[in-house]
Amino acid sequence: METMNYIPSVHSRENLAALLRKAGAAKLLLIGEYGTLTPLTLINEIKTQFKGRVFLELIAANKNRDLITSYVLSAASAGFDGVVIASGNFSASGPMARPVYDLDPSQMLSMISALKKEGLLPASFTIAARSAVGNGAIAARARYLLAHGAEYLAVSEQPGDEFKDKTMRIESL
């Protein structure tokens, strides 16, 4: 099972440089969107300083479908090696903003898989989806995601045996 070293937020270029030093010889980085700097503007610096693969954590929160399309195409074009689809934290900027959830992760997966099938994303561009770990509804949804275009589940806990071969483990950097 591959490990993703997770950087949930980047707030400055100095902050990024320090995080990349910390990443050291890691093979796979997952860059989140919770910082004040969007990962799309940072990929060149990341690729210069980090030799492994870099995935974007593409969250549904506070984007409509037009913006999600733009983000994923921009991510692939800028050099990200894949995305991890997630619903995202609820109103990360505080309780006053109106939360936007135009698409849910399954709908994002459907849209991004279609872009890949149409050739608008490189064949090597990996599509993963964040998942909780558990039984019942959680396992049923995980099965759905894998059956409908997710190449991997990205989880932050030990996955069950059923999903082990199709799981990437998220670990905070």
């Binding site: 934290n89 849910d104 909780a132 019942g136 949804r141």
Partner: peptide, 30 residues
């Protein structure tokens, strides 16, 4: 979040991460 297709990744056991005094509605549906 108004999700139309299953629970999100933030579900804690059976609980909603936003209204954590309640079960996730998708758990209840399941």
């Amino acid at each position: 979040r108004g999700l139309r297709n299953g629970p999100c990744e933030n579900i804690h056991g059976t609980r909603c991460d936003v209204n954590n005094d309640r079960d996730c509605v998708w758990h209840t549906i399941y």
